[in-house]
């Protein structure tokens, strides 16, 4: 009796459907428009690349994209500014942040959309609204909490006696573990999903965890792609928090490494831009990898009601 086994996939199958505009290949106009927009959008970035190959003394000289006297030296200088270690540190922090966000923020957003409980709406708005507080105000309290983190950096159970998470990668990752806006995003995504699937699966005796991981997550690849990309860039581009929480070269992040070339009144444009190019590449690679989720045939459309 308790082993009803009929699969509850009652959703219409898109496979049977013909070719809609979503599937149709792009026309020439489409590609030309997209290419034009891309070039326009890339102009400032192309200057970043151009400057990366330009000696600092000549930076922003003649407005021509191909430097007269290109050099690779800037990349060496940038790399020597502890960039290797910084890239490693930032990557470690990023991997943690991506995982925690993909797992916990997505699960929370799913529950807020599909498994509401008493007070869940209030809780949801409470959590998400914390994204509307400027960092300037929360920076110092968060710093105090990092310092008093129990059982870390020589601290006792009450958070006294040591330096806690200060100057450690654990401290760096602290504000990125869960992005409130990622919960919001996941909730929006799942609130548009077809809840009949879950209902049917429940009647068939599937547990909620199974319903989430086996039915809804596979349909949410674009969501997971976006959440990981956002978690990734969030860590990658932040400056203020790592500045405050780290102090040694061993815990430096990429933006801090770049700051070496940002001396007030005496910016080293060449190495700065070269460093910016170098640290953009890994993010681009991750994006390229992730964006496949947007075309995967797995989003067969049944998620929508």
């Amino acid at each position: 009796m308790s082993t009803t086994s009929t699969p509850a996939r009652t959703a219409p199958r898109a496979a049977a459907a013909g070719r809609g505009p979503g599937r149709r290949g792009a026309g020439v106009t489409n590609v030309v428009l997209l290419a034009t927009a891309t070039v326009l959008v890339l102009i400032p970035f192309l200057w970043v690349v151009s400057l990366a190959f330009t000696p600092t003394e000549d930076a922003f000289g003649a407005p021509q994209l191909i430097p007269e006297d290109p050099t690779l030296g800037n990349f060496g200088t940038a790399w020597d500014a502890n960039l290797g270690q910084a890239l490693w540190n930032t990557s470690v922090v990023t991997v943690v942040a991506v995982l925690t966000n993909v797992v916990f923020a997505t699960a929370a957003g799913y529950a807020f959309a599909m498994l509401p409980f008493r007070g869940s709406t209030a809780l949801f708005y409470g959590l998400v609204s914390t994204a509307a507080i400027p960092v300037s105000v929360t920076l110092i309290p968060l710093f105090l909490m990092a310092k008093q983190f129990p059982l870390a950096g020589g601290n006792d159970l009450l958070g006294h006696g040591g330096s806690g998470l200060l100057d450690s990668l654990g401290g760096v990752v602290l504000p990125y573990v869960i992005g409130p806006m990622n919960i919001f995003l996941a909730r929006q995504y799942f609130s548009a999903a077809n809840s009949d699937l879950a209902e049917a699966a429940r009647i068939d005796g599937a547990g909620e965890v199974r319903i989430f991981t086996r039915i809804y997550l596979p349909l949410a690849k674009p969501l997971l792609a976006v959440v990981s990309i956002f978690a990734f860039t969030g860590v990658w581009d932040d400056f203020l928090w790592p500045l405050v929480v780290t102090s040694s070269a061993e815990t430096q992040t990429v933006q801090l490494a770049l700051a070496r070339f940002l001396t007030s009144g005496n910016v080293q444009y060449g190495p700065l831009m070269a460093g910016a190019v170098l640290i953009t590449l890994p993010v681009l690679a991750v994006f390229l990898f992730n964006q496949r989720a947007f075309v995967s045939g797995l989003t067969d459309g049944s998620v929508k009601g």
Binding site: I140, L144, A259
Partner: peptide, 15 residues
């Protein structure tokens, strides 16, 4: 950079 000093010192003195 001295431009970043205040932010870091403020947090450090508070803690």
């Amino acid at each position: 950079d001295w431009g970043d000093m205040s932010t870091k010192l403020n947090a450090a003195f508070a803690a």
